[in-house]
Amino acid sequence: MIEFKVEGDYIPMIQLLKAAGLVQTGGEAQIVVEHGEVTYNGEVDYRKRLKVKQGDLVEFRGQKIKII
């Protein structure tokens, strides 16, 4: 599991995927979110600009990211 410390109140989903090193570009992040490959707190979420906050759990291709 990856623990990601968010600076500020939140980080947009596409920025999180890029910052965690799970995708190479923001464009790739948008595509995987649009295709339903990302879960947010256990549910598939298609919002690219979703505000991911402390305590949330994001999962993508077997990798879990816990926001701390």
Rank of each mutant, 00 (worst) to 15 (best):
M1E: 12
M1K: 07
M1V: 14
M1Q: 09
I2T: 14
F4G: 06
E7Q: 13
D9E: 15
D9A: 14
D9M: 06
D9I: 05
Y10L: 01
Y10A: 04
Y10K: 00
I11K: 03
I11P: 02
I11V: 08
I11T: 03
I11E: 06
P12G: 00
P12Y: 00
M13L: 15
M13D: 06
I14E: 07
Q15S: 14
L16Y: 08
L17K: 04
L17S: 04
K18P: 08
K18N: 11
K18Q: 13
K18D: 14
A19L: 13
A20Y: 11
A20L: 11
G21T: 05
G21E: 13
G21H: 11
V23M: 04
V23P: 01
V23L: 06
Q24A: 15
Q24C: 11
Q24P: 02
T25W: 09
G26Q: 01
G26H: 00
G26E: 03
G27R: 12
E28R: 03
A29C: 02
Q30A: 13
Q30K: 15
I31Q: 12
I31F: 12
E34M: 09
E34Q: 11
E34F: 07
H35R: 15
H35S: 07
H35A: 09
V38I: 14
T39Y: 05
Y40R: 09
N41P: 11
E43C: 09
D45C: 15
Y46F: 13
Y46T: 05
Y46M: 05
R47I: 10
R47E: 06
K48R: 15
K48C: 03
L50M: 06
L50F: 02
K51R: 15
V52I: 15
V52H: 08
K53Y: 01
Q54Y: 12
Q54E: 15
Q54V: 11
D56C: 11
D56R: 07
L57Q: 14
L57D: 07
L57S: 13
V58D: 00
V58Q: 01
V58F: 01
E59K: 12
E59C: 07
E59V: 12
F60S: 09
F60Q: 07
F60W: 10
R61K: 15
R61P: 05
R61S: 14
G62A: 04
G62K: 05
G62V: 03
Q63Y: 08
Q63V: 13
Q63N: 10
K64I: 13
K64Q: 13
I65E: 02
I65Q: 02
K66E: 15
I67G: 03
I67W: 01
I67Y: 03
I68S: 10
I68M: 07
